[in-house]
């Protein structure tokens, strides 16, 4: 289990390899890489600056990771989230879950990114042609996180 909050880029391939390196009990590694996109069309978003709450960010990411380990039989996991200024095409977030079997790895990977998006204290300031604007939270992200709600 590990979380990293960093300004620097990361190499998804190397991160995945490191998760299962030297292990003989891991049969599946699932990962998700988030990339900054220009969602408003050509040139609509020039860049975004990620702000976060140092201390609480790491704490929340560790809680999310621990929750994934509680729900699925994971052998290893990793969350990497960048902050600072990023341009479309740059990697912003990486989550990975490793398990003996694919089902736990795939489900835990989806859970990690869904919960991260609604619980980790990060905020995007978007730079567009008309200046800077704070990104709005999306209902779709709340719905994606809500599907992991446990009964009772």
């Amino acid at each position: 289990m590990a979380v990293r909050v960093q300004r620097e880029d990361f190499d998804p391939g190397r991160e995945m390899e490191a998760l299962s390196e030297g292990r003989r009990d891991i049969g599946a590694v699932a990962s998700f890489t988030g990339i900054v996109r220009d969602e408003k069309g050509a040139g609509g978003i020039r860049a975004m600056t990620l702000e976060h709450y140092p201390g609480m960010t790491e704490r929340k990411l560790e809680e999310i990771e621990a929750e994934a380990h509680r729900r699925w039989p994971l052998e290893a996991s990793l969350i990497v989230h960048r902050y600072g200024r990023l341009e479309p095409g740059e990697r912003i977030v990486f989550v990975a879950a490793a398990s003996s079997h694919r089902k736990a790895a795939l489900e835990a990977c989806a859970f990690l990114i869904d919960w991260l998006k609604t619980k980790a204290p990060f905020w995007k300031l978007e730079e567009g042609v008309e200046g800077e604007q704070w990104a709005d939270a999306r209902e779709a992200d709340d719905e994606a996180a809500a599907r992991w709600a446990e009964d009772g």
Binding site: H81, I92, I113, L116, K119, P121, W134, A135, D136
Partner: peptide, 10 residues
């Protein structure tokens, strides 16, 4: 005590 808008990371 921290105050902030809904989070938008990921």
């Amino acid at each position: 005590v921290a105050f902030f808008p809904p989070v938008t990371g990921g």
